[in-house]
Design a protein around this nucleic acid. Structure first.
Lengths: 210, 210
DNA sequence: GGAGAGTGGTAACGAGGATTACCCGAATAT
DNA sequence: ATATTCGGGTAATCCTCGTTACCACTCTCC
């Protein structure tokens, strides 16, 4: 009845083993969802790839969708953390430079592993209301960030003062769409070229006078 | 043995009835795929919505995927026809005007019914290799068209001469992504505003000097 | 008017796969 | 050392849905 103390098996405490299994399932999910496809991936396959039995899965996740949601959130969270952290170190930089860095950091994060791009921009699209809701949430978050940068640019006189909301949403959609296409041609088009296109796009959208 | 002549039932010949059923199934598919969601839609529901029995479906389509493919292709084909037809009537117009018209015609076609946007940019994403293949095919086609327009702009001295391939693909991805976001906010953002953003984006991408 | 073929609906079949009940083996505590 | 409890794997269950076999009905042609 020592419910408080943690029993360890094989010298490894419960929480650690859970973490490890969780990590292995996430890795297996990323791999299979982006090769076999999300819908086509069976729970059993997932477990096999993660080196555990069918049951192990249900110990960690409610459903396959929950695993997808976590993968999606994790990727975005990581990218967002990196971007916002980088931006705080550039507090004094000029708005144009901030935007370039923003793009670079984001693209580096999501193109480092093409599977992440495929996961986020193909496999996680239209899966379920819950996934769509999470997507919308992240679009909001990214739009806020871009809108804020656009406002800074306007303050600095680099862009006209106006409501950048729709523009920000469009930019998020555009980058998303760009990467959605990129991941099928990843071999052909290097990430830096993508970044150049994205930068041109975002600068033009914000500074346009129309 | 009058294999050539067509038997008619209820005064309606076979081919016409098939056409009508096909049309009703397509309509039901568009409706259900975009409300219930593609994956969640059962064949039985599809048939119920189309006012026919389970069997009617298999008479016209191999699988649910085939129906989706046809819907997808049809939407793109229609938009493409309109765009290319309009462009031929503008043979003499200046490149910038052609691009604006291109955007207007395309966006009008796919935003006329928000369901079309949802179908193309959400429900039909990541469904299966076949659907992805069709998507890639259409991206190619649209990219060719845009690349061609970009070359014309370059010829006219409105843009630098360069390889516009990646830019064209990006533009397709960007418009796609923009519409993917738009369809969730359709109520809030009017189509003309979207068109303005899209035009700014495409002009900037083509004329950029970097 | 009847024979025969075409058409469409109903209902049952069967596969695929998520979920869970059960059992065995491992690790602690007395 | 052994009783006790916890963790994990296997395998059966159950359910959902796509698919199709069969039947009743309608229409044409002789």
């Amino acid at each position: 009845m020592a419910g408080a103390t943690e029993r360890s098996y094989g010298g490894v405490p419960l929480t650690r083993r859970r973490e490890e299994r969780r990590a292995r399932l996430l890795a297996a999910g990323l791999e299979l969802f982006t090769s076999t496809g999300y819908q086509q991936t069976k729970i059993t396959e997932l477990c096999a790839a993660a080196g555990m039995s069918n049951r192990g899965f249900y110990q960690e996740f409610e459903t396959k969708e929950a695993l997808l949601l976590e993968l999606y959130a994790k990727t975005n969270q990581l990218a967002h953390d990196r971007v916002s952290q980088t931006l705080t170190t550039l507090e004094t930089a000029d708005p144009a430079a901030r935007i370039d860095v923003l793009i670079d950091v984001y693209l580096t994060a999501v193109t480092a592993d093409p599977r992440l791009a495929r996961l986020n921009y193909v496999e996680a699209v239209g899966v379920s209301p819950a996934v769509e809701a999470l997507h919308v949430e992240w679009v909001e978050r990214w739009s806020d960030l871009i809108e804020h940068e656009a406002d800074r640019a306007a303050d600095a006189g680099l862009a006209p003062r106006r409501d950048f909301r729709l523009t920000a949403i469009m930019i998020v959609g555009a980058i998303t769409g760009l990467l959605r296409e990129w991941q099928t041609h990843a071999a052909r088009y290097p990430a830096p070229d993508i970044a150049a296109e994205a930068k041109a796009l975002i600068h033009a959208s914000i500074t346009r006078r129309a």
